[in-house]
Write a protein that binds this DNA or RNA. Structure first.
Lengths: 154, 154
DNA sequence: TGGTATAACATGGTATTTTATGGGAATCAA
DNA sequence: TTGATTCCCATAAAATACCATGTTATACCA
């Protein structure tokens, strides 16, 4: 029995002419524990696809409902965007999902899809965009390294 | 039943052509109590590999979720960096894990891997780098000894 | 304490299983 | 019927589990 449900690692898989991609086996194992499908939507802030279990969106919905935050109205708007965009995907017996044109176009994915674990969710990038994004993040982290060191050392 | 779950001691094991290394038996005993797998990732601050139990990352995921909101940019970057890099490793019946090229390269490990206990987590170094690091730490301690003495006498 | 028997471990090699991925058949919709 | 989508099968490659052996460490006994 599995105790934890984190999407980890970075895996590159091919996208064929029909838009089919293998969901990394690790991810599949996690999904299968709780469900038979994942939810994907266009990232609001980056040229990539976001994926997660439906229960995470449930949690998001609940959080928004309970929020008395000053910015809750903005969050509400953002939530609408996500829920309006999100779509369920099931995988076939070989573990593949079929991504839609809309999603692939937004992420600028052609040949290869890069799955990047993010804990409770994951992202799907094109190779080029992911390279750029990873470089950007590492550069940013370098500048805030002291803070991280503290966090890391906990 | 085991009472403590700390990774201790420093052990050197061989890495074969396939990247296989025996996890020190002490470490294995600890891991087996709670799980069947460990998680490894490139250290953000040093040329070494870090390893821990998945529950530590779970805790981190929860902490990040609670300290920042769903749409936070910091959360986004942090989760990409940490979870995107981390990978699960299970050991076979003889207690070995297979380290990836990415990890070995980052730590500059060739022939031998040095496992260094760090309590809740552990690190894996190349012999050369660990020698340097150990010397650096001991030097640092020497300089701060007066402070320690003062603290002791409080 | 010293010597020997026993068990545990690290490590090399091999066999088996998973997984990704291409192609094609079946199903559904227009 | 035609085009598109879903499902299933086949295969090659890669990941993983298993077996065997030498070595080291541990336990046992004199």
């Amino acid at each position: 029995m599995r105790k934890s449900f984190l999407f980890l690692d970075t895996i590159t898989n091919k996208v064929d002419a029909k838009g089919r991609v293998s969901l990394p086996s690790d991810y599949r194992a996690i999904v299968k524990e709780l469900s038979t499908e994942i939810v994907c939507y266009r990232s609001l802030t980056a040229p990539c696809i976001e994926g997660c279990l439906e229960e995470l969106l449930e949690k998001l919905a609940t959080d928004i409902e309970n929020s008395t935050d000053f910015f809750s109205e903005t969050q509400d708007d953002l939530t609408n965007l996500i829920f309006g965009d999100a779509k369920r995907f099931t995988f076939d017996s070989t573990g593949r999902i079929v991504l839609t044109e809309k999603l692939l176009k937004h992420a600028e994915i052609k040949e290869n899809a890069v799955f990047v674990g993010k804990g409770r969710k994951f992202q799907i990038w094109s190779e080029e965009n992911w390279l750029k994004e990873e470089a950007r993040i590492r550069e940013k982290i370098k500048l805030s390294r002291p803070t991280l060191k503290t966090k890391e050392g906990e």
